[in-house]
């Protein structure tokens, strides 16, 4: 039930948290089964560009895999990830019902169970017992203008997440410092992060915020550039240089190591230049809905 009423003279929109459960459930399945068309198209383009025969063979398999997974509604990759759920909540929304995060986790639980998705989450990071239902999700919320809620479900595999890095540069390091840190990260990752990659870069903010920016950068539609001219230029330069590293598809050697580089930036302290690189494997999954 979605209704509107006046609270303190302001038009508010009520949403029951229980309504999120089936939405999150379906988003989990959709994200894991269906790679976006833009990604599959990009893989096809890369197949034409790739110079290595072995690299071409790998890309060909990845394209076939994406098409088969979507058609048969099965997971495109066995690592169906830890579930990152990002919600942009309009400030005119009022929640009713169970605790919002419990509703999100219930949706994840149902989606992973019904969708035959792998449960890859351990409860305590040191004791390491599988929670058995892929919860808890990593939930991030932002308050935005308006009365809508945008929900992004992003299952994040560990192969690429484990090769992601963060460094506190000094302001003097500048964009050259950013570039060399990104390239170093790509080289260290090699084939472990399942290239061709999508590279999310967060610059600025604080240590934690840069990391979040780098993950949010991965949500940007493929092929869309940063709106700031200098960052767009940096994205293009990085993409070109990453593809000169020779790492290639799955690190077997080749000319397609990354499909896209997305940078997100935020103001920072006069003394700081935080940089985070969040790598995304070839199975870049997210499903989005706005309610």
């Amino acid at each position: 039930m979605i209704t509107s009423n006046h609270l303190g003279g302001m038009e508010m929109r009520k949403i029951r948290t229980e309504e999120l459960i089936p939405i999150i459930k379906e988003l989990c399945k959709k994200a894991c089964y269906e790679l976006e068309n833009e990604l599959v198209d990009k893989l096809k383009e890369s197949f034409e560009e790739e110079e290595s025969e072995l690299g071409k063979e790998v890309l060909d398999e990845l394209i076939e895999n994406a098409e088969y997974a979507k058609e048969n509604q099965v997971a495109s990759c066995q690592d169906t990830g830890i579930t990152v759920v990002h919600m942009e909540i309009g400030q005119e929304v009022v929640w009713e019902g169970m605790y919002l995060y419990d509703a999100v986790n219930e949706g994840v639980r149902q989606g992973y169970e019904e969708g035959y998705l792998r449960k890859s989450v351990v409860g305590d990071p040191l004791i390491r017992e599988n929670t058995g239902d892929n919860t808890p999700a990593v939930i991030r919320t932002d308050i935005v203008e308006g009365d809508k809620v945008k929900i992004v479900v992003m299952p994040k595999g560990a192969g690429s997440e484990n090769m992601s890095r963060l460094k506190m540069l000094t302001p003097a390091d500048g964009s050259e410092g950013v570039k060399s840190f990104v390239l170093e990260t790509i080289r260290l990752a090699g084939g472990k992060a399942c290239p061709p990659l999508i590279v999310g870069v967060g610059i600025g903010g604080t240590m934690d915020y840069a990391a979040w920016l780098s993950k949010r950068a991965l949500q940007r539609p493929l092929g869309e550039a940063n709106k700031a001219e200098h960052l767009k230029k940096l994205e293009l330069e990085l993409l070109e240089e990453i593809n000169k590293t020779g790492i290639g598809p799955l690190g077997l050697g080749g000319t397609v190591t990354a499909l896209d580089v997305n940078i997100e930036a935020f103001p920072c302290h006069i003394a700081s230049l935080p940089v985070a690189v969040n790598l995304q494997c070839n199975s870049s999954r997210h499903a989005v809905v706005t309610i």
Binding site: N65, Y68, V74, A75, L252, S283
Partner: peptide, 13 residues
């Protein structure tokens, strides 16, 4: 031996 990382749906076949 290297398996094809990311091609898990067709590998299951």
């Amino acid at each position: 031996l290297l398996g094809l990382g990311g091609a898990a749906a067709i590998m299951a076949r």
